[in-house]
Design a protein around this nucleic acid. Structure first.
Length: 442
DNA sequence: CGATTTGGATGAATCTCTGG
DNA sequence: CCAGAGATTCATCCAAATCG
């Protein structure tokens, strides 16, 4: 297939001119750089192949790597590598010229970085839908994300509300909000150079530490676990020469880095026993989101609800029996760093932050929260996983109960969206929906 | 082909019921 | 009121299977 045979609106150049660069995929953008393909392989196919082959390492791709691909000679290889180098150069100059923290990426990219971690029930893909409803149904200057999780909803809210409150009782989520949202002095060059040093560390040169003794050869390779534990210790040692913001930037960068190499399915309820872990630790700095006025809390949602006043509260509780504090205990242990005794195969600490929203008392807790909170609008997320074959995955509150609880507070509208983010189980989730309840208080 | 939600067995802890 | 039995709830464990 030649590019000329494609309909006009799916040709990269035409698409770019009409909708701008953000509408194009990475391979489409690369196709424009390349300009033309070769016989039997059009430019889009060629670009796609390069993107696939390089994966995450695209920015570090070499002329040699590229020339191995059929259809890429030195001319095209140089075109690509030169373009990458040019952009890198400009970014470097921009960085070294500025004293204050300057985000390397645009706001949109910071948002995508915030969600660039494995976290059950994260609302990244639903955020557009949620805000399309919020924009129509709610008004006000302040927004509270009271079960913030990854923080993506709060981050979006920060672009349109004057005052944003972001809360989660997990230590790891809290550390991430402190890094991304909190005000405070931050010398980017300083944290960058620390991270650069961390990336030079080789696990083989290190002695065992708390992290490697517990998690090495299990959730992480022995070598990576040693590096992670060493870095965590070092961040703690440097605490007196770091500002609070710098401290949390380092902690969060570490959290995002370990997420990428963990020998798990994404949470830490178990690790793979059979596969031999062969990971390589690499740390990359996170880039905080510049926001006007964000308050960060680490409290039980029901406790915080009694203390705050807000125009809009977004309530996104756990939907089923899976306890977040048990799923992400390794992150919790790493952030707290009080080095507790760990139990069981999964090496969990003693219970902390167990949520009643994961138990049969969930509806009572929700009723209490809704009753206690002082807000003009209440927005609740929930789905319809009521027929799951696994009791752990069944929703804890019925649709009717949520509606009844909210209706006592004011007129309640329900919005729904067909949504099956992911399902690998045996239950047929054909009719899977995500719901958004919006209540305007009396 | 990498990412990730879920199945489902197991057993412990807690709650409820019942008869004396 | 209380022991003991039966019922229910809840956390643990470990990835398989399926999606984009």
């Amino acid at each position: 297939m030649k590019i000329k045979d494609l309909p006009k609106d799916s040709r990269p150049r035409e698409k770019f001119l009409e909708k701008g660069p953000d509408a194009l995929s990475k391979s489409e953008l690369l196709a424009i750089v390349l300009g033309s393909g070769i016989q039997g392989k059009n430019v889009q196919e060629l670009a796609k192949q390069i993107i696939q082959k390089s994966g995450k390492d695209f920015l570090d791709i070499t002329v040699g790597d590229l020339r191995k691909i059929a259809g890429i000679g030195s001319a095209k290889a140089l075109q690509i590598v030169a373009a990458i180098s040019l952009v890198k150069r400009f970014y470097q100059e921009k960085e070294s010229n500025s004293q204050t923290a300057l985000p390397l990426f645009s706001k949109a990219e910071n948002l995508s970085q915030l969600q660039n971690r494995r976290y059950i029930g994260n609302k990244y893909k639903l955020a557009d839908w949620i805000f399309s409803i919020l924009d129509k149904e709610c008004s006000g200057n302040s927004f509270t994300d009271i079960f913030a999780g990854t923080g993506v909803v709060a981050a979006r809210a920060a672009t349109r509300f004057k005052n944003v409150i972001v809360n989660d009782f997990l230590h790891s989520n809290h550390a991430i909000y402190k890094a991304f949202f909190d005000k405070g002095e931050w010398d980017k060059k300083k944290t960058d150079s620390i991270i650069q040093e961390y990336n030079l560390i080789n696990g083989k040169d290190l002695r065992d530490n708390y992290f490697s003794r517990n998690f090495g050869g299990k959730y992480f390779s022995r070598s990576s676990a040693k590096v992670i534990g060493f870095i965590r210790d070092d961040i703690e040692k440097k605490k007196n020469i770091l500002t609070e913001k710098e401290y949390y930037v380092l902690i969060s960068s570490l959290l995002y880095a370990i997420d990428k190499i963990a020998n798990t399915v994404g949470h830490y309820d178990a690790y793979f026993k059979k596969t031999l872990v062969d990971d390589t630790f690499a740390m990359r700095s996170i880039f905080p989101i510049q926001v006007e006025d964000v308050e960060v809390y680490r409290e039980d949602a029901n406790v915080l609800a009694r203390k705050i006043h807000t125009d809009i509260v977004y309530i996104d509780p756990p939907y089923n029996s899976r306890q977040y504090s048990r799923f992400y205990h390794v992150l919790e242990t790493l952030v707290k760093w009080d080095q507790p005794k760990l139990y069981g195969t999964a090496l969990k600490p003693t219970e902390e932050n167990m949520s009643d929203y994961c138990r049969n008392t969930a509806k009572d807790k929700l009723a209490e929260l809704v009753r206690d909170i002082d807000a003009r609008f209440l927005v609740v997320s929930y789905n319809n996983t009521y027929a799951s074959k696994s009791s752990s995955s069944l929703n804890k509150i019925t649709h009717e109960e949520i509606h009844r609880i909210l209706s006592e507070k004011g007129e309640t509208k329900v919005f729904e969206k067909d949504y099956r983010h992911f399902n690998a189980g045996n239950t047929d989730f054909n009719n899977h929906k995500e719901f958004l309840f919006v209540t305007k208080t009396k």
